[in-house]
Amino acid sequence: MGTGPDDRAISPVVGTILMVVITILLASTLTFVVQFDTNDEMADDVVEGDLGTATPEGDGLQSDLVVAENTTPGASDVVHSTVIEVDEAAGVELDEITIDYPTEVDLETSQQEDVLSFGIDTDADGELEESFSANNMGINTNDGDSRLTITKTTEYTLSEGDRVVLRVDSADNPDSAGEYNVTVTLNSDQTEDGTLVVG
């Protein structure tokens, strides 16, 4: 019985090449899946950082009232974050948040795009359950460029235990290392005094 074209086996060379190609494809797929999973975990870390929990205390709040992501004295365009737990302001509409800095902190002319995140963490899980759009807020500096005020038009009523999270890119650090007194105010209903550490 003769062997026709359909009866012949694939040559060993072609079979070997196919096995190598399949192995490379499987290895590439596995590498992609592992990298994707790692990037996903890194993204989760960035989100936590966005909430200002890069230096948390045991309860998840920041160790300082305002945290500079770059603490180098004299550094410019520094991202500052604050996390305020609501108590006295519970039950009122959140209209604005104000940070009063010492005169050693130089606030640049701020734009809406300088607000990297502004919202509410309602369950202290490090994620914003309520996020306010930059299109619905105003940002300004005054009092000799030592006061930063963010106003918003989106309606949100504060509840006790809410954490108001603000992260902005608009400050130049003082030229000298040290602890600087800062005040953060929610509307005029709740005021927190604390520190900004540089150096």
Results as ranks from 00 to 15, higher is better:
75 A>P: 05
79 V>K: 07
89 A>C: 04
152 K>V: 11
105 V>E: 00
76 S>C: 00
103 T>Y: 01
85 E>W: 07
122 T>R: 12
55 T>M: 10
172 D>S: 15
150 I>W: 00
131 S>R: 12
123 D>H: 04
88 E>R: 12
126 G>L: 05
92 V>Q: 10
112 Q>Y: 01
129 E>F: 03
131 S>F: 01
139 I>M: 05
110 S>L: 12
67 V>C: 00
128 L>M: 12
144 G>Y: 04
149 T>E: 11
105 V>H: 02
114 D>Y: 05
144 G>S: 06
75 A>F: 07
83 V>W: 02
94 L>M: 12
121 D>F: 00
144 G>T: 09
149 T>Y: 01
83 V>C: 08
140 N>G: 13
165 V>L: 06
102 P>V: 08
52 G>V: 08
67 V>R: 03
92 V>W: 06
122 T>S: 13
49 G>M: 12
159 S>H: 13
134 A>T: 15
160 E>N: 14
142 N>R: 10
117 S>L: 10
67 V>W: 06
142 N>V: 01
52 G>L: 03
104 E>R: 00
139 I>Q: 05
104 E>F: 04
110 S>Y: 02
91 G>W: 05
79 V>W: 01
75 A>T: 09
107 L>C: 07
100 D>N: 13
85 E>K: 11
53 T>M: 13
101 Y>D: 04
69 E>K: 13
106 D>G: 06
156 Y>M: 03
163 R>C: 03
150 I>Y: 01
68 A>W: 02
87 D>P: 00
54 A>P: 00
73 P>H: 12
99 I>S: 02
150 I>E: 00
70 N>T: 15
46 V>G: 03
128 L>N: 11
124 A>E: 09
88 E>N: 14
152 K>F: 07
157 T>A: 10
62 Q>E: 10
165 V>G: 11
143 D>E: 12
130 E>N: 12
149 T>W: 01
106 D>Q: 12
61 L>G: 05
96 E>V: 06
164 V>A: 07
67 V>Y: 09
144 G>C: 03
53 T>S: 13
111 Q>E: 13
58 G>D: 14
90 A>I: 09
